[in-house]
C-alpha cells in the first residue's frame, strides 16, 4: 500500500497513470452528467411550492458541495506538503484552487439566479450565499498568493499554510455567518427539508454530485499534468515524451 502510494507520488508515474485514466473519466463524466440532467430536468416532478425554478438546485447544490470538498482536499494536500514535502501534493493543491474557485463561483451564480424568482432579487444576504462568497475570497487569496511568489516550491509551501489556516477558519466563518443571519433577518425562506426530499429528486441530485466529482478529478488530472510538465521541463522523463 505504502509502496503504491510512493510510486504514485513520483511525477512521471502519475503523469502516465493520469493519462491512461483520462478517456475513461471523460466517458464517466458524460454519462453521469446526461443521466443526472435527464433525471433532474425531465423526470423529476415540479416542486409544489417553487414550481420549475427549483431545478437549478441540481447544479447549485452539487457545486456548493464541491466548493467545500475541494477546499478540504487542498488542506489535506497542505498538511502533506508541510509534513512530507511531497511534490505531487504541491501540484494537486495548486491545480485544485482554480477548479474550486470555479465551483464556488458557479454556486454563487446559480444561487442568485434561483433567488430571483424566490426572493425577487438576485442577491439576498442569505447565510449560505454569504459564506459561499467568503469562501470565494479564500480561494482567490490562495490563487493570488500563489501567483505572487515566483519560486514554485516556496509558493506551494505558502499556499499550504494558507489552506490549513483557511480550513480551520471555514467552519468558524460558516457558523458565524449563519448565526449573524438568524440574528438579523429572523427565519426567512426555509429551504427544502433534506430528509423529506423525494427520491425522484434525490437521485438526480446525487448523480449530478457524482458527475461534478468526476469532473473535478478530470480537470484536476489535466491541470496536474500541465503543471507537472511546466515544473519538470528540464528533467529527463519530460524530454523523453
Amino acid at each position: 500500500m505504502f509502496l503504491w502510494f510512493h510510486k504514485l507520488g513520483s511525477p512521471p508515474h502519475f503523469y502516465r497513470i493520469a493519462g491512461k485514466w483520462l478517456p475513461w473519466l471523460n466517458w464517466a463524466f458524460m454519462i453521469l452528467l446526461l443521466a443526472g440532467l435527464y433525471g433532474g430536468l425531465i423526470l423529476a416532478p415540479p416542486d409544489y411550492q417553487q414550481g420549475e425554478s427549483y431545478r437549478i438546485i441540481f447544479i447549485h447544490v452539487p457545486a456548493a458541495w464541491m466548493s467545500l470538498f475541494i477546499y478540504v482536499v487542498m488542506a489535506v494536500c497542505g498538511a502533506v506538503i508541510i509534513v512530507w514535502r511531497m511534490k505531487l501534493a504541491e501540484v494537486v493543491l495548486i491545480s485544485s484552487a482554480p477548479i474550486g474557485a470555479s465551483f464556488t463561483f458557479l454556486a454563487l451564480i446559480t444561487g442568485s439566479l434561483w433567488g430571483k424568482p424566490m426572493w425577487g432579487t438576485y442577491w439576498v444576504w442569505d447565510a449560505r450565499l454569504t459564506s459561499e462568497l467568503i469562501l470565494l475570497f479564500l480561494y482567490l487569496g490562495v490563487i493570488g498568493l500563489h501567483n505572487a511568489i515566483e519560486d514554485r516550491r516556496t509558493a506551494a509551501r505558502a499556499v499550504a499554510i494558507l489552506a490549513l489556516v483557511g480550513v480551520v477558519n471555514i467552519p468558524i466563518i460558516h457558523y458565524s455567518v449563519e448565526w449573524w443571519h438568524s440574528l438579523h433577518q429572523g427565519p426567512t425562506v426555509t429551504k427544502f427539508d433534506k430528509p423529506s426530499i423525494h427520491w425522484s429528486m434525490l437521485l438526480p441530485l446525487l448523480l449530478m454530485a457524482l458527475a461534478f466529482q468526476v469532473y473535478y478529478v478530470l480537470a484536476l488530472f489535466h491541470r496536474c499534468r500541465a503543471e507537472l510538465l511546466r515544473r519538470e521541463r528540464n528533467s529527463k522523463w519530460v524530454e523523453e515524451l
Binding site: I134, F137, L138, L140, G141, G144, L145, A148, I149, A158, I161, L162, V165, G166, N169, I172, I173, S176, V177, W179, W180
Partner: peptide, 30 residues
Amino acid sequence: IGVALTVGLRKGGIILSLLVLPLYVPVLIF
C-alpha cells in the same frame, strides 16, 4: 499569519488584505 506569508513579496499589501479580511469576518460579526 498573513504578514508572515506576504512579507517577502514586493506587492504584498493588496494580497495581504485579500488573505486577512475574510478571516476577520467572525470577529467582526460577534
